[in-house]
Design a protein around this nucleic acid. Structure first.
Lengths: 202, 202
DNA sequence: CGGCGTTTTGAGAGAGCTCAACATCGGTGG
DNA sequence: CCACCGATGTTGAGCTCTCTCAAAACGCCG
């Protein structure tokens, strides 16, 4: 549900827009949380860095999507938010949000629903990350991210970005896509993948 | 935060207790959501089954912990809930919860905080699942689940259960624990692991 | 045209999975 | 008390698959 539909006017009025260059951090793990954000333009990724120094991507938010919902109830951010492209984000201050929830149960509930969606989203990602086989992981991604027709997936950004989001090396992803195409399972075109043998479930 | 501290009396009064045998399902993916649950006794795991038929464990709830929070805003459950041991759960009906949120912003906010914790929890699990090395994954688990002293981890259930929760085969877990013990990094005793060289971060 | 990042393909090595055998522990029943 | 039985715990060997390191096209932009 778009933010516009449930966020009280008082909160929207308190929002602050911020522009980010590609690679620039909106916030880092441990920063004091200022509020939650809506991506207006571009793409912003939520990530953590593991002990080996690898970036673990938790979520990539595009225009209209929100991030850092959970930070409203926490004094600090629990992961990094970094612009993957040049981006514009709108920050809704924490204090205004919490105040609004007290006065407007509808807003509080809508926010709860947003958080609930986050939870489901994260669960799907855990399922994906649990798959060790590159081929199955890609299949899982494609079936989860297939468009309304269930057959085509639009790719945002580069394949290298996608590899990072999938938690694979870019070599593994290239090879896997090539193999799937050779097997007649998918068809690749500019910024798009078409499933030729759509699978159920996933 | 314990459920007792924020759940309105009206909702608590509407709760229903249910006993489960080990292995019995509280609900399955796709079932119409009835409400959210608190584990009174025993352990209940949230899981999905992947295409290869393997169970992917999303969360294991023990006494006092809650599950299926997100289902309040969804018509159906998004994963399975299965008792790992004989267990008792308390079900708080969806309708009573939503009604309470309308009247009691405090409760709605506390619920939001609970969901936010879920989100953080899931993020940590994604980070864990992103680690391919069994040794590092076990280290990550130990550091995240270390007790207040930061040096000991109490194990619930069997090592086999733990292996499933970590997303490793039980053989890999046995070998890894044995190797860590040989390396003098941990000490194992009945249902407990002690870290001999506590690590920062993780 | 030159430079840089993405896309591809190759070869080798490490690590976990699978299959398999065996030890250990707890409970059951004779 | 002991034999039996199932599940957990443990170790071994081989295989597959991804990661890593390397190198070469390809595409885009100044």
């Amino acid at each position: 549900m778009p933010v516009k539909d449930w966020l009280p006017a008082a909160v929207r009025a308190a929002a602050i827009d911020r522009k980010l260059k590609a690679g620039e951090a909106l916030f880092r793990l441990g920063d004091r949380s200022a509020g939650f954000c809506e991506v207006i333009a571009g793409r912003v990724r939520m990530a953590r860095v593991d002990r080996a120094g690898h970036e673990v991507i938790l979520y990539v938010a595009g225009p209209g999507e929100t991030l850092a919902e959970a930070s409203l109830f926490s004094p600090a951010y629990h992961c990094d938010a970094i612009a993957s492209t040049d981006a514009t984000v709108r920050i809704y201050p924490k204090a205004a949000m919490l105040a609004a929830f007290d006065k407007d149960p509808k807003a509080a509930q809508a926010f709860g629903a947003t958080l609930a969606r986050q939870v489901m989203n994260l669960r799907t990602r855990i399922e994906q990350r649990n798959i060790r086989s590159a081929r199955e992981r890609v299949r899982h991604y494609l079936s989860v991210n297939a468009g309304a027709d269930g057959r085509s997936v639009d790719l945002q950004g580069t394949l290298k970005d996608l590899a990072a989001e999938l938690g694979l090396t870019h070599e593994a992803l290239y090879r896997t896509l090539a193999a799937l195409e050779r097997a007649g399972e998918i068809k690749r075109s500019r910024g798009k993948i078409t499933l030729l043998r759509p699978r159920k479930g996933g």
